[in-house]
């Protein structure tokens, strides 16, 4: 048994291809992004080592800071919207008929490609023929906004389809966690006279704390690196009003062919994501972990 199960050749055959793949396609590029960020480079020609010049430039680049600010706004919105998803999941996990069907319906947008969602919502937001403004006009609103062309509202307008896309996913996770809580605990609390609010806040939420932490990390980090819908729907516009870190990186590298500077942004994005993960984990760390009995 021992001998067969520690056969070095078999282990190498089973593990090495995958290991080489993630080394070559995930880890090596991360290191290279860090290195390219120290160079001036147009992606094809010679690289010139310039030390921290790109990062000095980054600190003074107001477009970068406004795109970083937009990313943080998205992260904040996403974090707050988790409360709504949690409430929906709490209601859904009560004795609701058709809860299973409802959570499946909620999940449908999550299965669609970002491109399809983006194109669909561009049509929904269309200033004259979109379904949103058609409805608003039939309700008597004379000049409904051109949602994606107004710098002051474009970020919020983009956030709606992002919520639409991910709501079902978070509701599903919360719902699964709530269904995992043993019914006997709630029953005991009810016999002791606890009302539904007390049961939710004193029993259900503490038992879900691990799941809630994971979703905070997911939604915040996911928002910080968000790209797809924004790239298709506004491409960072109008006038940079919806530019985020990932789209700014993409524009610098693949439109302006400033691969060195783009890499510096990409490396910064990686650091922001890792630091955010660490900080959220630390801020939400509890001294004791609660176990399901």
């Amino acid at each position: 048994m021992e001998k067969v199960m520690s056969n070095k050749l078999v282990i190498a055959l089973y593990v090495l291809p995958s290991l080489l793949l993630i080394m070559g396609i995930i880890y090596m590029p991360i290191v290279l992004t860090g290195y390219y960020g120290l160079n001036e480079w147009n992606g094809i020609g010679e690289m010139t080592f310039i030390g921290l010049e790109n990062y000095k430039h980054l600190i003074q680049d107001s477009t970068f800071w406004s795109s970083a600010f937009h990313s943080f706004e998205l992260a904040l919105f996403s974090g707050i919207s988790l409360i709504g998803y949690l409430l929906i999941a709490l209601v859904l996990s009560g004795k609701i008929k058709g809860a299973n069907l409802l959570r499946k319906i909620y999940l449908v947008p999550m299965l669609l490609s970002s491109v399809a969602i983006a194109q669909l919502w561009m049509k929904i937001y269309h200033p004259t023929n979109g379904v949103l403004n058609s409805l608003l006009m039939s309700l008597g609103v004379d000049n409904p906004p051109a949602w994606l062309a107004e710098p002051s509202i474009v970020l919020l307008a983009l956030f709606v389809p992002i919520i639409w896309q991910y709501a079902g996913f978070y509701i599903l996770i919360y719902y699964a966690a709530l269904k995992n809580i043993p019914e006997s605990l709630m029953e005991a609390a009810r016999i002791d006279g606890a009302n539904p609010w007390q049961i939710a806040t004193r029993i259900k939420l503490p038992l879900m704390s691990e799941v809630i932490k994971v979703t905070i990390v997911l939604s915040v980090v996911g928002s910080l690196k968000y790209f797809d819908l924004i790239y298709v729907m506004t491409d960072g516009g109008p006038n940079g009003a919806s530019e985020v870190m990932a789209s700014y990186m993409y524009h610098k590298a693949f439109r302006s062919f400033d691969f060195g500077y783009g890499s510096a942004i990409g490396f910064f994005l990686l650091l922001v994501c890792l630091v955010a993960t660490y900080l959220i984990r630390k801020a939400t760390a509890s001294k004791e972990t609660i176990q399901y009995s």
């Binding site: 991360i30 992004t33 690196k225 993409y250 990409g266 994005l269 990686l270 993960t277």
Partner: peptide
């Protein structure tokens, strides 16, 4: 945990 976009240029 690695964001796809940070690997894109390399």
């Amino acid at each position: 945990m690695i964001p796809v976009h940070s690997t894109l240029i390399p």
